[in-house]
């Protein structure tokens, strides 16, 4: 074995121990029953959780779309600002990510609670009395879960799009104008298509964590709207204690994510490679 080969050994061992073997274990568990026999039972049981699958996909998709709708214009405007402004705003976008994820989500709880900041404020200014209610239900709703996802994952949408737009050659925009394109046409025919790699990687980076999250739905959804992440957690740690079923769900979710990414890559084919941050 030459030296180059030897130097890769630690990484190969690491990958095998912590990536390949756990993945294989999940596959094996997914096809095993409680008494240890091979079976497809776990998968047939999945049918009763269709609602959870659908809810997870819908909420994650909604959060992704909202992130895109907010994130794209932000990235676009940012990319045209001065370098010093860009540095400061990038810093501000990243800043919340330096604070613990749970802490950030707890903070939203105290804002959205029935006796939380928003409801107290609405009470003070008399809106609640006007409506004849003693609080507006904000927490423990799907809306709160989506809000949590958007808040936590928005930077993952902004940063890749920003970096693609920022690197766009200005002469391409001038070339489009030169060929007769109006400002709107320059955007739809040149800037947007060229920023697609950033958009695709942003979508992936928001959708994947959104579909598998469990903390956000637990804290902001109050367990009323069970998501895939919660379901898996329940099987391994919670009351249900059925790691075999949990593995089956994980496997299906992984396949779903992989299919999504394959579709994405097909979209991005021939484009510049997606920018990962």
């Amino acid at each position: 074995m030459n030296r180059k080969r030897i130097s890769t050994v630690p990484y190969v061992i690491w990958m095998a121990l912590f990536v390949v073997i756990p993945l294989l274990l999940i596959v094996v568990y997914a096809f095993t029953t409680k008494d240890g026999g091979f079976s497809l039972e776990n998968f047939s049981e999945l049918g009763s959780y269709t609602a959870v699958f659908i809810r997870s996909i819908v909420l994650a998709l909604t959060a992704t779309v909202i992130c895109l709708v907010i994130g794209y214009p932000v990235s676009y405007i940012l990319a045209r600002e001065s370098a010093s402004f860009q540095r400061i705003s990038n810093m501000l976008i990243m800043l919340p990510m330096w604070i613990n994820f749970l802490l950030r989500t707890y903070a939203w709880m105290s804002i959205l609670e029935n006796t939380g900041m928003i409801n107290r404020f609405l009470g003070k200014i008399g809106v609640l009395a006007l409506l004849g209610v003693d609080h507006i239900q904000l927490i423990n709703t799907n809306g709160a879960v989506i809000l949590g996802m958007v808040y936590n994952y928005l930077p993952f949408m902004i940063l890749p799009i920003f970096s693609v737009i920022q690197r766009l050659d200005r002469s391409l925009i001038e070339a489009a104008q030169d060929l007769g394109a109006t400002g709107f046409q320059v955007f739809t025919k040149v800037i947007f298509p060229l920023s697609l790699p950033g958009v695709l990687s942003g979508i992936t980076m928001v959708f994947v964590p959104s579909i598998s999250t469990f903390a956000i739905s637990k804290l902001l959804g109050g367990g009323t709207s069970l998501l895939l992440g919660d379901l898996i957690e329940m099987q391994f740690l919670g009351g249900a204690k059925n790691p075999y079923l949990g593995s089956a769900i994980s496997l299906i979710m992984m396949i779903m994510v992989m299919v999504c990414m394959l579709i994405m890559n097909r979209f991005g084919e021939g484009e510049e490679e997606a920018v990962m941050l």
């Binding site: 050659d169 002469s171 391409l172 001038e174 070339a175 489009a176 104008q177 030169d178 060929l179 007769g180 394109a181 109006t182 025919k189 040149v190 298509p193 060229l194 697609l196 021939g270 484009e271 510049e272």
Partner: peptide, 29 residues
């Protein structure tokens, strides 16, 4: 503005649209 002038430009570094093939680049205008 440039889009209303009957002049066209060949830019220094060509500025071809990398997301389009040769046909669509030429057909752009």
């Amino acid at each position: 503005p440039p889009n209303k002038r009957s002049v066209n430009t060949v830019f220094q570094r060509y500025a071809l649209f990398t997301h389009l093939n040769v046909f669509d680049n030429i057909a752009f205008g």
